[in-house]
Design a protein around this nucleic acid. Sequence first.
RNA 1: GGCCCCGUGGCGCAACUGAAUAGCGCAUCAGAUUUCGGCUCUGAGGGUUGCAGGUUUGAAUCCUGCCGGGGUCACCA
Length: 599
Amino acid sequence: MRHKIQQMQIHNLLDTTAKEGILEIYQIEIPKIEFQETRKDFDGDITIVVFPLLKFIKGNPFEIATKLGEYLKENNTLVESFNVVKGFLNLVIADHYFVNSFNKIYHTHNYGFETPKQDEKSVMVEYSSPNTNKPLHLGHIRNNLLGYAVAEIIAASGKKVYKTQIINDRGIHICKSMLAWQKFGNGETPESTGLKGDKLVGNYYVKFDQEYKAQITALINNGKTEEEAKKQAPILLEAQKMLLQWEAGNEEVIALWKKMNQWVYDGFNQSYKELGVNFDTNYYESNTYLLGKDVVADGLSKGVFYKKEDGSVWIDLTEEGLDEKIVLRADGTAVYMTQDIGTAIQRIKDFPDIGGMVYTVGNEQDYHFKVLFLILKKLGFSWAENLYHLSYGMVDLPSGKMKSREGTVVDADDLMVEMTNTAREISQELGKLDGYSNEEKEKLYKTIGLGALKYYILKVDPKKRILFDPKESIDFNGNTGPFIQYTYARIQSIIRKADFDIENTIANYTLHPKEKDVIKQLQNFPFVVQNAAKNFSPALIANYTYELVKDYNSFYQTVPILGVHDKNQKIFRTQLSKKVSSVIKSAFSLLGIEVPNRM
RNA sequence: GGCCCCGUGGCGCAACUGAAUAGCGCAUCAGAUUUCGGCUCUGAGGGUUGCAGGUUUGAAUCCUGCCGGGGUCACCA
């Protein structure tokens, strides 16, 4: 199946003529003509699919296509010739159209990107959303890459975007780390140990768990049941006490909480910087966990929610095919849902220009977000129509599921280092890095290593699970980030060697088929960006870039560029190369991937 | 069990709103290259798109049922 063409320029230029043709030949008005790119194994540039017209015109498809082809050839100068295969009318478009189109593209800065429009509402994209008791792992990497890329893509499509994360900085899990540090930490700090703050705090979370388990075992040996032991372990009781103290605003506990959280944030920020992601604003659960209660009260009076005898508040979604869902506990305290309702509303208050939100959260929360969005709609918020759960599948390891308890977690920082090391090994064998300082080389290895990782994860449909083998799954050949980076670097090399003025505009030019292929691919870029934004899909950008690179490499292999005698050809081909490289760079920037000038 | 997601050559993936002979990479085999970076290019073999029905001029795509994998059905987050 070929790509349908939604708004391509040729389509617009032919649409009217085609409709007029049908009107003249058959006296029938057709609402829509369907265009698609011509398959490469047929002759032509654009194809009209005749089958849908059969609903309006009785007749045989071949005949209709032929008549329409004749009409188009006579009445539209763009159409040079045509051929008909079954119900497909393949049109050959004149070179001058593609040459003019390329010249426009060549001189368009930020080609494919829209500047934010005044009348478009902004979008808030939430991603990452870590817990402060554990370092970032492979799952967070997928989350971060997806969220960041989607935010960039939406921005490029012409909407203002706010990137945010909600940091889960409160609750019993935080108290566990704090308690363990108090008991066993001997005043250790990130400075004194040289550890990243998130790693240090994570270690104490693990320490708590070890101690907790030891105490359970001891209690069981003293005759308690397992259930009793789990509830009565002294260290757990202490942690619970600490949570109460935190909620009561105990100064000492709050001070410790602030100190340790700051360590974690410093550590996270370092990881984010390495990964190349950022946020415009942060939300903290400690500030938002009480929000939403007022909304629940309000919704109760409106009849959206109802109260059970014990005082808990629920919403009945059975009519929508879902269950009943609690939104406030009997004791009046908030649940996860309460908080998410409150946070969503708070965000709109904070940024009134927002018209929609994207939540980048794993697919185990599909149900939660379905319910959340439904509740917000029932509460009558207009923006609730524009909420999207960017749901993604789990990242599995060959050894099994990624669960921190099982000790099979791939740490985000370690993985990035590993990728950089792999890139270093390969580049030292093959690179053309004469004259690069060590610092420049290290930066390059990072660019390549992270490029491989990011591309590998982003090219896959977010819904699908990824099986990730850190040792073997990153390839540097085929459909990979480094392959595309290599093409970019090679083009830069050509531009460096071009010892003539490449900025002359070439107007009259006969295209080589490979040149035409590349131009057609370049023409698609703006529509791919729009489509990727509409579908929240970085994979569309990744796969487009690969297609472009393949077409370019085929061109590169088939015709000489700098070595060609004709001056116009030399200039045109260099310009074509240059624009391809700039589109690669733009597309990769949407994925958060950098491109090197050499590698 | 109810609901949700996934299932495409040996492996990893693509196919936007149903459209031509289901594309691509890895791996395998056979070739190309006096020259711009051989991490390139050209070609071959390899498929009943999990199974069975249905709708349609036309189905990987839509509908129904089943099979397999995962998730979820907490007054956890």
